[in-house]
Nucleic acid binder design. Structure first.
Length: 480
RNA sequence: GGUGCCAUACCCAAGUGGUAAGGGAACGGUCUGCAAAACCGUGAUUCCCCGGUUCGAAUCCGGGUGGCACCUCCA
């Protein structure tokens, strides 16, 4: 199975070939655990999960690493701004360590609810302080650093290819820079190690060859990816916002320290937008968490399905109308394929040889599915194929069921599981009595075969947003 | 100011030179006392606008218009 990926390095589609046959080293920038992840953050992890599952579907073993940033970096790369972790701690009256633990666990819960595959490692920045110090020492020895009053900085003048990755000329970048220069020689220079301010006890600080302080915010990814995967990664993932600063700096420090390419393929995810305010971001205040969606009656997998409707390199617009449309499509899809999966479960016998016993028609669908995945992980196209296959009567139910069960290894919708119904809308006691009274009146009218009256009451209930469903076992109602 | 991206039906969205996938909503039908669910059917002579290249363009090129992102933390 051939996989083509859009590589930010060179900005073009490229056939994927790992460094070592059969194995993929994949590093993904994870969350800073000072607050809940919002659904925009989560879109990126869902998309990265589609990539990982595609690679595994193609037969690769994926050494997938996602970091947890539990060190509070400054909110600006100059010497200004607050430490996000300390800010979170102050906001909630807890220690930074408690904050880190709480939001890490919340993140893990979201991860599980979205049916994301566990990475091979979840390194925490605070667990790799010595490796980060070591990285800075190597850079210092090789002459890429200089010291100012507040820290050790990377000298971007010493790395000729600095602007290449982001595709920008250094002069333009420097001329347009908005950061305060401070003691830095160039606006593009960045901190590798920051000193704790004189007379200030920071909540998180460590001993180092340069005195007490804390690592710069790009150091952890270089140090942890090197420790867990190696100096050269096959794939490095992240959001598009990281291209300019974070990934550019990771490349600079990693390649100068190790003398070899840092990552061979860079895969960047586009943002989730809102209709009103554009990009969803924590710093702007308002943001939605997965829990808010769940509280509104959506399943986490409804959100996963929603993510699957747009390609990872395109903006996806969130609105309640759009997520509801995805939920409806998702639920209808599950209802439609349930008998297909059952038919397949009924005829399958033990383990099967992957493709050898597929019919010609099945092989044709299989080929189309793999092509969609291979085209830069085109999940929306693959999902469209799954929808079409579900209605394709040229294949028997079990033939379709077999393919869909297999495709779910990539779609990750956990299709074999029955999703619980959304929780009912809250109804106050007095409202409930009103509804019960009308509901009983309608039942009486139906018993008397007074259809006109029954329909009149149904309309009255509808005005209260109450839907009545009649089944052979009796009637029931629910508020929507 | 610098850099880059996007623009396809009511909504979401695939398509990247060969004659517009898929889903949701809506409408019509079957079923049902009526509804709900399910199933069947109906949708762009056209892809923001204007030029150009080509036998052929939503797809390539040029120029507009509109929206967005990055250049401070951010997925």
């Amino acid at each position: 199975m051939k996989i083509t990926l859009h590589n930010t390095l060179g900005r073009k589609l490229q056939e994927f070939k790992p460094l070592k046959p059969g194995v993929v080293g994949m590093y993904c920038c994870g969350p800073t655990v000072y607050h809940y992840a919002h659904i925009g953050n989560l879109r990126t992890y869902v998309n990265e999960d589609f990539l990982r599952r595609t690679l595994e579907y193609a037969g690769y073993e994926v050494n997938h690493v996602v970091n947890i940033t539990d060190v509070g970096h400054l909110t600006s790369d100059s010497d200004q701004g607050d430490d996000k972790m300390e800010k979170g701690a102050a906001r909630e009256g807890r220690t930074v360590w408690e904050i880190a633990e709480h939001y890490t666990q919340a993140f893990f819960q979201d991860w599980k609810r979205l049916n994301l595959v566990q990475p091979k490692a979840w390194p925490r920045a605070t667990g790799y302080i010595s490796q980060q110090i070591e990285l800075v020492q190597i850079l210092e020895t090789k002459g890429f650093t200089y010291r100012t009053a507040d820290g050790i900085y990377f000298d971007t003048e010493k790395f000729a290819r600095y602007g290449d990755f982001a595709g920008i000329k250094l002069d333009d970048l420097r001329a347009g820079a908005r950061v305060e220069l401070g003691d830095k020689k160039s606006p593009t220079d960045f901190a590798l190690w920051k000193f704790s301010p004189e007379g200030v006890q920071r909540a998180m600080e460590w001993e180092s060859p340069w005195g007490i302080g804390f690592p710069g915010w790009h150091a952890e990814c270089s140090a942890m990816s090197n420790s867990l995967i190696g100096p050269t990664l096959d794939i490095h993932c992240g959001g598009t916002d990281h291209i300019r600063i974070h990934h550019t700096n990771e490349i600079a420090q990693s390649e100068c320290a190790h003398g070899q390419p840092f990552a061979r393929y860079w895969v960047h995810n586009e943002f989730l937008k809102t209709e009103s305010s554009g990009k969803m971001s924590k710093s702007s205040g308002e943001f939605l968490t997965l829990q808010v969606l769940v509280d509104r009656g959506f399943d986490a997998l409804d959100y996963r399905y929603f993510c699957a409707t747009a390609h990872y390199r395109k903006f996806l617009t969130f609105s309640w109308e759009n997520i509801a449309a995805s939920r409806d499509a998702h639920r209808a899809f599950r209802r439609r394929i349930a008998p297909l999966l059952s038919a397949w479960a009924g005829v399958r016998s033990g383990e099967l040889d992957a493709a050898s016993d597929l019919s010609a028609a099945q092989k044709d669908w299989q080929k189309r599915f793999e092509e969609a995945l291979g085209q830069d992980v085109n999940i929306p196209k693959a999902l469209g194929l799954a929808q079409s296959l579900a209605r394709e009567e040229a294949l028997s139910e079990s033939e379709r069921g077999r393919l869909l069960a297999d495709w779910d290894r990539v779609l990750g919708l956990d299709l074999g599981r029955e999703l619980p119904d959304p929780p009912p809308v809250e109804v106050s006691e007095s409202e409930r009595l009103d509804i019960e009274r009308l509901f009983a009146a309608r039942a009486a009218a139906r018993a008397a075969k007074d259809w006109a009256e029954a329909d009149r009451v149904r309309a009255e209930l509808a005005e209260l947003s109450v839907v009545v469903v009649d089944t052979p076992e009796g009637s029931s109602w629910k508020k929507i």
